[in-house]
């Protein structure tokens, strides 16, 4: 059996504080820009290429970059895993709730015109698309982060902890 890797998603070992100074500085410069760009892509999605799906991925990637440079534990202090579970389901609820709202206003499910039936420039559609895209953004961002957290923290707690099943294939 091949020796298992000691590498994690955390490239910054605690022993040397001054490693990767350039990476850290550049990342600190870039992360807010990436996050703002994600929001731009989201809110500009009606006018150009973009929308909730892309914005969610870009926004999540800014936090993933943070985790790659500063370590997963630091990232978990920025966005705790407990939030992720809530936001994940909140996004689906926002999307579904928009449909229910149009229902209650007297239209079909997801018939956004009901938000502003008298508008001459389809304001109801704009509001509906806005609400739905928010739902997509929340779900996609948190699911991507959940996936990253799950893979990133899998290795750390495995060895040395209680594991009744021997991992390295010496069972047979």
């Amino acid at each position: 059996m091949k020796p298992q890797s000691k590498t994690r998603f955390k490239p910054m070992p605690e022993r040397s504080e001054n490693q990767h100074v350039i990476l850290r500085v550049v990342a600190k410069l870039l992360i807010p820009l990436i996050a703002v760009y994600g929001l731009y892509v989201h809110f500009h999605g009606d006018y150009g290429p973009g929308g909730g799906f892309q914005a969610g991925v870009i926004f999540a990637s800014s936090i993933i970059l943070y985790a790659l440079i500063f370590g997963l534990d630091e990232a978990k202090r920025v966005v705790p895993p407990s939030w992720i579970r809530i936001i994940m389901s909140l996004g689906v609820l926002v999307f579904g709730g928009t449909g229910v709202a149009t229902w209650l206003l007297g239209g079909e499910y997801l018939n956004y015109t009901m938000f502003a039936p008298d508008s001459t420039h389809a304001a109801g559609q704009h509001w509906g698309i806005f609400a739905v895209e928010i739902g997509v953004l929340l779900t996609v961002t948190s699911v991507i982060l959940a996936i990253f957290y799950a893979f990133g923290s899998r290795g750390g707690s495995r060895r040395g902890s209680h594991s009744p099943n021997p991992v390295d294939g010496d069972k047979s």
Binding site: G45, D46, Y47, P49, G51, H121, A122, Q125, H126, I129
Partner: peptide, 9 residues
């Protein structure tokens, strides 16, 4: 009907 520029959205 929708009156937003991005047809894909």
């Amino acid at each position: 009907q929708i009156i937003i520029p991005n047809v894909v959205s």
